[in-house]
């Protein structure tokens, strides 16, 4: 029983092989890009807008609001990264209803890749916001003795991020597969619906956690700034 789309080879040419994970990722990328392009090539700035534009505006505004709520910062710089995490995972999970489709998020390679992206993005945002010295000093808080634990925490939360998403999506697929052989027809459909819900929740959780990690890396300096400003005032 295949539990990861990595092992499904769709196309092979010599050494190069195209597995299902990458193929379905491309599908998701294509879907998102084309639908976005179809809508945004004809954007209206008047008060009357098309339904599709309205939908996209609602989505983007919703993501921005979420980012703002979590980070308490201007959402502009985080929107591409965090928004794309959410949209990608969300659409990848949503397409599970299509027969024959296997969510790329059900592959540990994909979730690891996303978690690595977050793992790299956090210090990047932190350094961009605080400067390298201030950022790395966080690892010495409250004392230098805590440095290994801080580093360990950073790594472990990245692993947790990857495994959480992979486990949820993979387990949904696996459960559906097992139930299909045990009680066909009705129950697997319910589980599939539950899987959709789980998929959306996981997308939200992944994006919000990423945002929280980035925010914690960028907010230390701002908290300090706030403190000095309140003192001076």
């Amino acid at each position: 029983m295949d539990i990861t789309p990595d092992s499904i080879i769709l196309w092979q040419y010599g050494k190069f092989s195209l597995n299902a994970t990458i193929a379905y990722t491309w599908l998701v990328i294509g879907l998102l890009t084309v639908s976005s392009w179809l809508v945004t090539r004809r954007l209206s700035t008047a008060t009357e807008i098309s339904r599709w534009q309205n939908l996209l505006e609602v989505v983007v505004t919703g993501i921005r609001d979420q980012i703002e709520q979590v980070s308490r910062q201007q959402p502009g710089q985080f929107l591409p990264f965090v928004g794309t995490l959410f949209l990608y995972i969300s659409v990848a999970n949503l397409l599970n209803v299509v027969p024959g489709y296997m969510a790329p998020t059900g592959s540990l390679s994909t979730t690891t890749a996303l978690a690595l992206c977050v793992f790299i993005a956090v210090p990047l945002y932190g350094i961009a916001s605080e400067g390298p010295i201030a950022y790395f000093r966080q690892y010495l808080q409250p004392t230098w003795f805590m440095l290994p634990f801080n580093v360990l925490g950073e790594i472990s939360r990245t692993i947790a991020l990857a495994v959480r998403l992979y486990g949820n999506i993979m387990s949904g697929t696996v459960i559906a597969g097992i139930l299909l052989s045990l009680t066909p027809y009705f129950f697997p459909v319910v589980m599939q619906l539950l899987g959709l819900l789980t998929g959306q929740i996981q997308a939200y959780i992944f994006a919000v956690l990423a945002m929280v990690y980035i925010a914690s890396a960028t907010s230390a300096h701002q908290q300090q700034e706030k403190r000095t400003s309140t003192q001076s005032s």
């Binding site: 890009t33 954007l43 502009g76 591409p80 928004g83």
Partner: peptide
């Protein structure tokens, strides 16, 4: 891609 086709134009 999304930055180019979605976030920026919509924003």
């Amino acid at each position: 891609l999304l930055q180019h086709f979605l976030y920026q134009p919509i924003t």
